[in-house]
Simulated scan of single mutants.
Amino acid sequence: MRKIGLIGGMSWLSTRTYYEHINRLVQSRAGMDHSAPLLIESLDYSKLSRLSSADEWKRAAGILSDSAKRLEKAGATAILIGANSMHKVYDEVAAAVKVPVIHIAECVAQRMAADGVKKAAVIGTRNVMLESFYRQKLIARDIELLPPEMQFVDTLDRIIYDELLLGKASRQAERELKTIITNLEQDGAEAVVLGCTELEMVVDVDANVLPIYDCTRIHAEAAVDWIMGEG
C-alpha cells in the first residue's frame, strides 16, 4: 500500500473523521488486520480561521505549502488537504510539491457526473459557497449549480464557525440544515454537496430528502484508491 499525507487540524474534528473513514475503508478492502499507511500534520487552526484579505490567504498558502513539503519529505506519495475552504490555495500547494495533491471538489464532481447529477447545490462556509475556486470544479463537469442564497450563506457560516468547528452539534442546527436542504429541493436541486467537512455532524447523509454528497467521505475514498494503488 502507498503512504498518503493529510494536512489536518482545520478543525481537528474533521481530521479525526478523515482518519476513521480512511482506516475503515482500508480494512474493508484489504482485510480487518490492515490499517492505512498515513502521515498527518495537524496545523494550528487559529492561524487559518475566517480568512478574508489577500495577505491572509497568501500567508495560509505558505503555511499549507510548507506542510505539504514536510509530508512529501517524510514519505507521502500523495497529499490531501483536510478542509474544503483551504482548497482556495490548492494551486499554490500543488505547485510546492512533486507528488499529487488530491482535490476534494474534483473528487466530488467526478462522483456526481458518474451518477448523472445535472443540477445541484453546494452548502458550506461563505467562501466555498460564494467564490469560484470550489464551484468551478462542479460546473466543469456540466453540473448546474443553484445560486447561493445569502440567507442560507449567513446561517451556514454561523453554524459552521460558531458551533461545528467547536465540536458542538445542536438540535437547532440540525433543524436549520433540514430546512435549508428542503428549500434547495424545492428550488430544483437533484442533490446537495456538503462542502464543509464538519457538516456531517448535523446532516444525516444516508437518510435525507435528497442525495447527499459528503465531501469528506468521497475525498477519503479517493485517498484509499490511491493507497491501494487504484488511483
Rank of each mutant, 00 (worst) to 15 (best):
E72N: 06
D142H: 15
A113W: 11
D142S: 15
I143P: 06
A83P: 11
E149N: 09
H103C: 00
K119F: 09
H103Q: 04
G124A: 09
V117Y: 02
T155R: 14
I139F: 01
I104E: 05
N127A: 13
A120T: 06
A83K: 08
K137E: 12
V128M: 02
K137I: 06
K73G: 14
F152T: 11
R70V: 09
A114V: 12
M150P: 00
A109H: 09
V99K: 00
A113G: 12
A95K: 14
F133R: 05
T125C: 01
H103D: 01
P148I: 00
G124T: 12
M129V: 03
Q136F: 04
Q110G: 06
V117M: 02
A105C: 09
P147H: 11
A95S: 07
I104M: 15
I143V: 01
P100Y: 13
L80P: 03
V153S: 00
L146G: 09
K69Q: 11
I81P: 07
V101P: 00
D142E: 15
I81W: 11
Q151V: 10
V153L: 01
V108M: 03
P147D: 11
P148K: 02
E92L: 10
V122H: 06
A76N: 08
D115T: 12
N84T: 06
G116T: 14
L145N: 05
V108H: 02
E149F: 11
P147M: 13
R135Y: 13
A83Y: 10
R135N: 08
Y134M: 05
K137W: 12
A121Q: 05
A74F: 10
L80I: 09
E131D: 04
Y90M: 07
Q151W: 07
D142V: 10
H103P: 00
M129S: 04
I81R: 02
E144A: 15
G82T: 07
A96F: 12
K119L: 03
V97F: 14
I123G: 08
G75L: 14
P100K: 15
Y90C: 07
V89N: 06
C107V: 05
S132W: 06
V99P: 03
A74E: 10
R126Q: 14
A114P: 13
H87W: 05
A68G: 04
A76K: 05
F133K: 05
K118I: 03
E149K: 09
K88Y: 11
P148V: 01
N84G: 12
P147G: 11
L130H: 12
L80E: 00
K98N: 13
V108Q: 01
G82M: 05
G116C: 13
M112T: 10
L80Q: 01
S85Q: 15
K88E: 07
V89I: 05
N84F: 08
I79M: 14
I104P: 04
V93I: 10
K73E: 15
R135H: 10
I143Q: 02
A120G: 10
I79A: 08
T125P: 07
F152K: 13
E106R: 12
M150E: 12
D91E: 09
T125G: 05
H103I: 00
I104S: 09
A68C: 02
G124R: 02
I143C: 03
E131L: 08
A105H: 04
V89F: 03
R70P: 08
R111P: 06
Q151H: 04
F133T: 14
A83R: 10
A109P: 06
G116Y: 13
R126G: 08
A94Q: 14
G116F: 12
M112H: 12
